[in-house]
Design a protein around this nucleic acid. Structure first.
Length: 496
RNA sequence: GAGCCAGUAGCUCAGCCCGGUAGAGCACCUGACUUUUAAUCAGAUGGUCGAAGGUUCGAAUCCUUCCUGGCUCACCA
C-alpha cells in the first residue's frame, strides 16, 4: 500500500513511531519482562475488600494491548488486555511524573504497553492497577475497529482474522473451544489405547474417499502428486502392520464446492480399531461424542441455531433402506427397479445418470429427502454396496455394506464401516470404480495395487471411521458457517 | 457453475426508488477536565461513493460489464 492511499490515521501513527525513535525510545523493544497476567491479578485479589486490596502491598508487572482509553487530562483509565483477559489501569500524572506522563500521552489505542503498579478498587467497584511505570512495548500503526459496533464486515473478518480476533472476544472463544474439543477427542482416543500417527498428505494415487483431488507436482521426481482426500488407505496399511488402534487428526483436501458446510481443506479425525465391526464402532462413537460434547459444552445437550440437540447415549439408529422406503411415494417395488428409481429421482429434480448404479440412485434420493430431516444425532446404517467401495460386504445380504453415517442437524458428521479386508473383493471393487472413473466420474477411486498387496498380507477384521471436526465444532459453538470455525477459511486472492 | 443481496470516511451505517456540489455516530486531531465504565463538553479534519464504460447539461443515485463478499441452489463431508 502506498503512502498516498493510506489513511491519514496510519500516516500520523507512522510519524509518531519516528518521533518516539527521535526521543531515544525503541518503539519495538523486546526486553520488557511481564511478571503477571490480568487473570492472575484478578484471582489474587478476588474476594478482598477494597481496603484489603489497597493494603495488600502487592505490586504487579503486566503487559497487554490498550483496548480503550478514558482520558481526563491529568489522569486516565486504560483498558489493558492480555491473553488471559482484561484489567483496568489508572494513570495519574502526579504519581507517574512529568516525563513518563508525557510518554503515556504518546500512546494510542491498539499499542502494546508494559505497566508496573499496585492494585486498588475504584469507587465504582472495579479492580484497577495504579500505574507507577509505563513503557511502550509495541507500537501499533493501524487503527482498531470501532469500540462499540466492532468489526462486522465478514470479508475483513475472514481475510484479516487477526483483527477479528482482537476486536471480537466471542470469536476467540470459538477457536479456544475448537482446540479444547480436539484435545478432548485425542484424550478419549489415547485413553482407549489408540496411537496417533501421521500419514502422507501428498499421495501418488488419490484414495480413501469419493472426491476430486487437488493435483500438484514434484519437480525433482517429475511426478504429479495429489493432496490427500482421506488418510484411510494409509491408516489401514498401519493396521496391517500391527498397530491395531490408530488415529490421525489432520487436513483433507477436496477440489469441490465451497459453502457454509464445505471448505476446500477441512479437518478430519480418522480412527481404526482392529477386532471390531461397524456396530462396535457406533457404540464407540456414541461414547466418544457424548464424552467430548459433555467436556466441551458442559453437558450432553447443546443448542444449535435454536434447536436442542442431545448427545446423550443412545443415539437413534435407522436402517438405510427403512429410511429410504419411508420416503413418501417411494416404495420397495419402485426402489428395486433402476428405471423407476431413476424416474422418481428425476421427478424430484435430483440429477441422476443412467450410468449410476442403483445404489447410487438410492443414495441420492436418500440425501435429498432424508438427510436434511435428521436433526437429533442419528446413525443411518447398512448402505448400498455400490457406493461403499471400501466397506465390508454384509454376510446376510451381499448388496449391503456394513457401513453407517452419523447425521446431526441435517449434516453428515461421521462415516464409518467394517473395513473390507478380502483382497480379491477389494480388487474387484476398485475395478468397478476404475470403470466409473473411465466413464467420466472424476470422484471415483483409482486402482491402488499397493493397497491390495497390503490386504494380501492380511488386515485383521477392523472397523474405521472419519469424523468431520469442523462440523462438530460448528455444532458445539453454535456457528452457522464452517468459515466461522476455520481460522483462515479459503477466499479468493485479494485484489491489489 | 446459476439465482438473489451487498460494497459510501479507519469502523458501524444513512443517502440510491424520485439524478442537482457527500451525511451521521464512533475513532483520529485541537482544547477543557485527577475515580471513568460506549466518560463528558467544545471545535476542526477526513471520501476517485468497489472498478471501468455508457446515458445526461449534470451520476453515489439510471444502464452495461467486471471485481469482491454473503446467502440459496448445484457438487460434496
Amino acid at each position: 500500500m502506498s503512502d498516498q492511499s493510506e489513511s491519514r490515521i496510519i500516516t500520523a501513527r507512522k510519524e509518531k513511531v519516528e518521533q518516539v525513535r527521535e526521543q531515544g525510545i525503541n518503539p519495538y523493544p523486546n526486553d520488557f519482562k511481564r511478571q503477571n497476567t490480568c487473570k492472575d491479578i484478578r484471582s489474587e485479589m478476588e474476594g478482598l475488600t477494597p481496603e484489603q486490596v489497597e493494603g495488600s502491598g502487592k505490586s504487579y508487572v503486566l503487559s497487554g494491548r490498550i483496548m480503550a482509553v478514558r482520558d481526563f487530562g491529568k489522569a486516565a483509565f486504560l483498558q489493558l488486555e492480555d491473553g488471559s483477559g482484561r484489567i483496568q489501569v489508572f494513570i495519574k500524572k502526579d504519581v507517574l511524573g512529568e516525563e513518563e506522563y508525557a510518554l503515556y500521552k504518546m500512546l494510542d489505542v491498539g499499542d502494546i504497553v508494559g505497566i508496573s503498579g499496585t492494585p486498588f478498587v475504584t469507587r465504582t467497584g472495579e479492580l484497577t492497577i495504579q500505574a507507577d511505570g509505563v513503557v511502550l512495548v509495541t507500537k501499533s500503526v493501524r487503527p482498531l475497529p470501532e469500540k462499540w459496533h466492532g468489526l462486522k464486515d465478514v470479508e475483513i473478518r475472514y481475510r484479516q482474522r487477526y483483527v477479528d480476533l482482537i476486536a471480537n472476544p466471542e470469536v476467540r472463544e470459538v477457536f479456544r473451544r475448537r482446540t479444547a474439543l480436539i484435545k478432548h477427542l485425542r484424550d478419549h482416543l489415547d485413553e482407549n489405547g489408540f496411537m496417533e500417527v501421521e500419514t502422507p498428505m501428498m499421495h501418488p494415487i488419490p484414495g480413501g474417499a469419493t472426491a476430486r483431488p487437488f493435483v500438484t507436482h514434484h519437480n525433482t521426481l517429475d511426478m504429479d502428486l495429489y493432496l490427500r482426500v482421506a488418510p484411510e488407505l494409509y491408516l489401514k496399511r498401519l493396521v496391517v502392520g500391527g498397530f491395531e488402534r490408530v488415529y490421525e487428526v489432520n487436513r483433507n483436501f477436496r477440489n469441490e464446492g465451497i459453502s457454509t458446510m464445505h471448505n476446500p481443506e477441512f479437518t478430519m479425525l480418522e480412527f481404526y480399531m482392529a477386532y471390531a465391526d461397524y456396530r462396535d464402532m457406533m457404540d464407540f462413537t456414541e461414547e466418544l461424542l457424548q464424552t467430548v460434547v459433555q467436556k466441551a459444552a458442559g453437558g450432553t445437550s447443546i443448542t444449535y441455531q435454536g434447536t436442542e440437540l442431545d448427545f446423550a447415549r443412545p443415539f437413534t439408529r435407522l436402517a438405510f433402506y427403512d429410511a429410504l422406503y419411508g420416503v413418501k411415494g417411494f416404495s420397495e417395488s419402485e426402489g428395486s427397479d433402476h428405471g423407476k428409481a431413476a424416474a422418481f429421482a428425476r421427478k424430484a429434480e435430483i440429477p441422476v445418470s443412467d450410468k449410476d448404479p442403483l445404489g447410487k440412485v438410492h443414495l441420492k434420493i436418500f440425501e435429498h429427502f432424508v438427510e436434511p430431516k435428521l436433526t437429533a444425532p442419528t446413525f443411518v446404517y447398512d448402505y448400498p454396496i455400490s457406493v461403499s467401495p471400501l466397506s465390508r460386504r454384509s454376510d446376510a445380504d451381499p448388496e449391503i455394506a456394513e457401513r453407517f453415517e452419523l447425521f446431526v442437524a441435517g449434516m453428515e458428521i461421521a462415516n464409518g464401516f467394517s473395513e473390507l479386508n478380502d483382497p480379491r473383493d477389494q480388487e474387484n471393487r476398485f475395478r468397478q470404480q476404475v470403470a466409473e472413473f473411465d466413464a467420466g466420474d472424476e470422484e471415483a477411486h483409482r486402482m491402488d495395487s499397493d493397497y491390495i498387496r497390503a490386504l494380501e498380507f492380511g488386515l485383521p477384521p477392523t472397523a474405521g471411521e472419519g469424523i468431520g471436526i469442523d462440523r462438530l465444532v460448528m455444532l458445539v459453538t453454535d456457528s452457522p458457517s464452517i468459515r466461522d470455525v476455520i481460522l483462515f477459511p479459503h477466499q479468493r486472492a485479494e485484489q491489489p
